[in-house]
Write a protein that binds this DNA or RNA. Structure first.
Lengths: 207, 207
DNA sequence: CACTAAACGTGAGCAATCCTCACATTTGCA
DNA sequence: TGCAAATGTGAGGATTGCTCACGTTTAGTG
């Protein structure tokens, strides 16, 4: 997770080591500011100041403010996707899938609770078109991972159906997380549990 | 739906007939602009110009740009809630509830497809805190309506459980609509159908 | 009608903020 | 050493939400 490769978000790829570190500092500064007051309150001038660079340098690498948020979003997505791929890798039968997926929901919920930046980004996810697209692609990719395991343990079912249902389950999972973190903790826990039961029942129904 | 009463959104309540009409014109202008390019691209100066009023007048009634969007959002919510209350009113048994709720999902989906302003508002729903709160309150109110009918046809079940599940189902319904309108029409239709089956199964499971 | 207070209406301009651009500096390399 | 490419700078342009000091209209009262 060292490279600054993510998407085509960057205006210019820093080729020298010095500038790579500078871009990293910019992202760290942005992260800190989002933690403190949310991405909406994050000011480009502040990001530059905290990173110890000029406004001009910031814009040399990030075409606009949204690009910073998008870059962070894709990093979190990549981590989450790796986590999901890992969790579903060893699944052999339906029971294994149910257990693995149930565990992933709890893990994801824990991450949502613990990561203020991720929370902020996915709360404001609908704000601009580009972020929404990233969100959609993420759900599709995660859905594909789930679908792959699902098809493996339910070979008789329609692949198209499973793919679509997996996509829906992943999208609604994210929606549930967003909902859960915007209510009191106890209620949020219960809502996630309800969602989990619903999702597992849906998976089992096609199995 | 004539009064300009909604929430405490207005900075000053127009008491004279003339100013009531002016406020209505402001909202109409805003609606037209949102239809054309989305609420994000809506400029306060343009709203004023289209409504045939000055910037100052706009801000006399709406404390900020978001207040206009919020006012429109609550109008749509009120309509939707009335529609849900109406659809669930005559429900007597579980089969009736399933049929009524299934029908409501289709109705809601149709509205989402047909109303660009509603789509825009609920797409950007997570943008600012105030809108998110409105969204949450709306889901709670709609959830309460569903819970009421649900409890009626499933008297044995835990009321708390039903209330929470109804809230979740309503929230995820909105999430499904948002998802459905951001993919191709055919896939969106299928996703809504999948959600419907999931929701109905969940309702039946507690019955 | 005359008068007054409150409601209503106006738009120049303030303030905040994103982003550009002309120019300066540093780095990699022949 | 010298040069081109990469990198760095920050004053300021441009946009836009919003304010405020002041003018106009309306409702109500004697």
């Amino acid at each position: 997770m060292d490279k600054i490769e993510e998407s085509g978000a960057l205006r210019r790829a820093p080729s020298q080591k010095r500038s790579q570190e500078r871009v990293e500092r910019m992202l760290q500064a942005a992260t800190a500011l989002i933690e403190e007051a949310g991405s909406d309150a994050m000011r480009m001038g502040e990001v530059a100041e905290r990173a110890g660079v000029s406004i001009g340098s910031l814009y040399q690498y990030f075409p606009d403010k949204g690009a910073i948020v998008r870059t962070l979003a894709e990093r979190y997505n990549a981590e989450g996707r790796a986590c999901i791929a890992d969790g579903l890798a060893g699944v052999r039968d339906m029971d294994g899938l149910l257990a693995a997926f149930g565990g992933l929901i709890d893990t994801y919920y824990g991450i949502f609770l613990a990561e203020p930046v991720m929370r902020d980004i996915w709360s404001g996810t609908q704000a601009d078109k580009a972020l929404r697209d990233i969100d959609l692609r993420d759900s599709r990719a995660n859905g594909a991972l789930l679908a792959e395991a699902w098809q493996r343990v339910a070979p008789g079912a329609s692949n198209e159906d499973i793919a679509r249902k997996a996509f829906l389950i992943m999208s609604l999972g994210e929606a549930t997380m967003r909902l859960a973190i915007s209510v009191e903790r106890a209620e949020g826990d219960a809502l996630v549990a309800d969602y989990k039961a619903m999702a597992l029942r849906e998976i089992e129904a096609v199995g």
